[in-house]
Design a protein around this nucleic acid. Sequence first.
RNA 1: CGGGGCGUGGCGCAGUGGUAGCGCACCCGCUUUGGGAGCGGGGGGUCGCAGGUUCGAGUCCUGCCGCCCCGACCA
Length: 564
Amino acid sequence: MRSSQLFGKTLRQAPADAETISHKLLTRAGFIQQIAAGIFSLQPLGNRSITKIKNIIRDEMDRAGGQEINMPVVQPRDLWVESGRADTFVPPLARFEDRREREMIIAPTHEETATAMARAGVASYRDLPFTIYQIQTKFRDETRPRGGLLRVREFEMKDAYSFDADEEGMDRSFQAMVAAYKRIFKRCGLDVIMVDADSGGIGGKDSNEFVLLTDSGEDTILMSNESDYAANVEKASFIKKAFPIEELGEVEEFATPGIKTIEELAKAEGVSKSKTAKAVFYSVDGEIVVVTIRGDYEVNETKLRNLLDGAEPKLATPEEVKAAGLVSGSASAVGLTGMKSVVDDSITMGSNYLAGANKDGFHLRNVNFERDFKADIVADIAEAKKGYLSPDGKGKLVAKRGIEIGHVFKLGNVYSSKMGANYTNEDGEQNEILMGCYGIGVGRLLAAAVEANHDDFGMLLPRAIAPYEIYLAGLNLNDPNIAGKAEMIYETLQNAGYEVLFDDRDAPPGVKFKDADLLGIPARVVISSRSLENGGVEVKSRISKDAEIVAESDVLASVKALFD
RNA sequence: CGGGGCGUGGCGCAGUGGUAGCGCACCCGCUUUGGGAGCGGGGGGUCGCAGGUUCGAGUCCUGCCGCCCCGACCA
């Protein structure tokens, strides 16, 4: 490709509203164009990188036994009613009516259609297992897109779905995808780690995220400083501090004028926060749920939601608290009736707590679980934080930021049971197909690659996903000698199979060098009067400071050596 | 959805009531060619939209829209 023909110009300055490195560089380099919040077009260079990423993904999906399919973006809403997600998916489905007034949606993901495909195509265990995948557009009307391609509303995702007859098969299919994912990220030059994750709105039991650790990421990852334990904060657990159970004291009310928080209470009584039982009130589908957790921990709302069968817990508003007859600042589960009670297991690891008296300006001493208040559910709903003990007993947790590039789920029968995706087993009985699903955000992967690989001058894309492999710059092409030789080298490199961007513009050297650096093309070849005087052609890697001069006849060998 | 910020030429910005400007980019010519060149000439803007105040609005007021950041939320 000749620069003079290339559509898309580089920008000297990034648009003022670009904040993250990848957004700035991808825009300046002419890879992407923003159309609306979270909606982008790909220009030729960006499209080439994306195409390369997609081809790597296809290659590895195929190698892992996947079969490529294609499912529609526009779907009847009925399909989502079947799965139960029509009204619960977050963000809400984008919907419209077609000309026959049928309710349609724009798909944010494709579990429903994939399940429908399997349901139609599978009759017997002999038809299983298989894995299908596509690279397809999704639309999610996020409230807050951010960071250029990092978080968008419309995006291309590689989504794969596995279908198996039994648990062992499902696990095998899952592991095959995990292995493929590791290869994909490695080939894209990304050092990605796999962490435990919450499965959120997709459902299923186990899920793992593939995360690139970087400060520009929006996810918080907790990992052990001594073992390979790593989890998204939504999922992360830890070993809670346990205290000896004392002899249970008698409940005693005392005045606490002006005391509204756990901190104030603990301080006033001269005890650690772990000696308090904190009550937090949530509104869940209009019902008040009281959550009790030891004062030294905080509630993880994702864990709470999972306990409440996926219903969205929202902190109760002051009005709701009041309407329920609760006294904020002095509330506790003691003596409360008619509302659901959830207790974090930290409460069972201590005794004789301080807690609210449900009376303005008063608290209680020696409050104990079971004796003084009960729970409908006792479970771990505490948020892990840095410094806490790793759940595997090895080391402490440290917190890092990361970008979630991929996510894999063991879905089990979540969709097949609701949508009736069954097969006949060896004994002639009907069984539910067990599924897994596996996603990679393609554009986000590119953005992450830029976040991970750049310097002050521009991108440093790995060869596998750079739009071109070689940036060929001829300086002073008005000189017919240089122009002629540059054309010959262009021919030679292309004939050898390299993807070459030939900067044939009538521009000063500085402009060409700056563009070469900005675009992050891994190799640069320069021919100029100076290089010719020095004995030929200059060959330089994007990442190295120095160039080497080689004879014209050795360009090919030199480039090859540089790539090896 | 809560908080904050910003909308003036392709990009970056200046312009606090009186003729819409600057840098880069773009077009033409000449010169120049190793890190975003020099000189000369030129084109391009309903100042986000709609109302209002005023003799007069990019500038003041009201409403709306869009975009960005933080938070909430999020396969």
